[in-house]
């Protein structure tokens, strides 16, 4: 029975180990601190997109407001450490607990809504949060932002060093991937997928569907809050525009490009969009002399294209390609076997 997991869900360790090797080796090839920064941000944003993949791909609920939970983490950490000189680790935990409570209450209220209505409600949450951080300028610094957030240190290790911070962030990403994979590879994951296929039948089998939707919503919010804390300590300066709806949309694009039904897809999508983002900014500035929000136009286009041509995302396409290669290999092997048998 030891392999029951693998029988039901396929292998976990193969993709896990592959990603780990990539993450460990990348710094050897990356010499520019700029690229390292992008890689760190990919790690931080992956935390959020993994949560969104659980929420959207598994529980089937949309959110256009996760930038707000990202913001709660960032501002709780930022304010408590920069203004009140609190311990960053305790601040991070406070951020997580606070986000859990807030998202649970919000979730209970809005997750009864479906489709467009849920999307609108989550957008409204995002807008309210944005207005709140602008308004509470005594604590948050308002529109001018919050400066002087200290970098993290772990035991004697100064995580202000980008390379150390890179490994630290990706270590957390792996922990979160493992935690999320464990959920997916249990009857919880099964019931989340079954909600997708038939909510009515799932309910009939004794599942309190509403409760699970709220739990997954809160869990994804907590991931975002954790990401927000890490972001604040990394960037050391936070301002409201980073936590607006445009960022929520960007997160959604990341998950959709990678493939909503896969944790790996979330990470892949995040990486692709982040590099695309930098590339667009570069092209825009050097060739067209635009330095505004060109990205948002491109995201809109990407969403439409993804919906039309690869609704299951890149991971699905890669999986199918992999299967094709494998079946060609098997056929080739069979052919060789047949010809040798004939020859004998």
């Amino acid at each position: 029975m030891a392999k029951l997991d693998n029988v039901l869900y396929g292998h976990l360790w193969r993709p896990f180990a592959s990603l780990m090797v990539i993450v460990l080796l990348l710094p050897l090839f990356v010499k520019s601190s700029y690229i390292l920064t992008v890689l760190i941000l990919i790690g931080i944003y992956s935390l959020i997109s993994i949560g969104l993949s659980l929420l959207l791909g598994y529980a089937g609920q949309i959110s256009l407001g996760h930038a707000a939970f990202f913001g709660i983490g960032a501002y709780v950490s930022g304010v408590l450490t920069a203004k009140y000189a609190g311990s960053p680790w305790i601040a991070m935990v406070i951020g997580i607990v606070f986000t859990w409570l807030v998202s649970y209450v919000i979730g209970m209220a809005i997750l009864r809504l479906k489709g467009h209505f849920l999307a609108l409600a989550t957008m409204a949450i995002n807008i309210i949060f944005f207005i709140l951080i602008l308004g509470l300028d005594e604590f948050t610094g308002g529109a001018s932002g919050l400066v002087g957030i200290p970098s993290l240190s772990l035991f004697q290790l100064n995580l202000g060093n980008p390379l150390y911070f890179y490994f630290f962030v990706w270590f957390i990403v792996f922990v979160i991937i493992l935690f999320s994979m464990n959920i997916i590879r249990s009857n919880i994951g099964r019931l989340l997928r079954s909600i997708h296929d038939s909510e009515i039948a799932t309910e009939t089998l004794g599942v309190n569907v509403a409760k699970y939707k709220v739990i997954i919503f809160s869990l994804s919010a907590v991931y975002a809050s954790l990401a927000g804390s890490l972001y604040a300590h990394f960037i050391s300066f936070i301002a409201p525009p980073s936590f607006y709806i445009t960022f929520s949309i960007l997160l959604l694009v990341m998950v959709m490009v990678g493939g909503v039904h896969s944790i790996w897809g979330a990470v892949l999508g995040t990486a692709i969009i982040m590099f695309l983002n930098e590339w667009i900014r570069y092209i825009g500035q050097t060739y067209f002399h635009i330095s505004g929000q060109v990205e948002i136009v491109v995201y809109g286009l990407i969403i439409i294209l993804v919906m039309m041509f690869m609704p299951k995302g890149l991971v699905d396409i890669l999986e199918r390609l992999w299967k094709k290669i494998k079946s060609v290999q098997i056929k080739g092997a069979e052919k060789r076997k047949m010809t040798t048998e004939k020859g004998a």
Binding site: R190, L191, S194, D197, L205
Partner: peptide, 20 residues
Amino acid sequence: QIFNNMTVLENVMMGVHVKL
């Protein structure tokens, strides 16, 4: 009302939810 995108085994395993 079956779960079309899940395997037969997973469908039936869903039925055990109340015991887990």
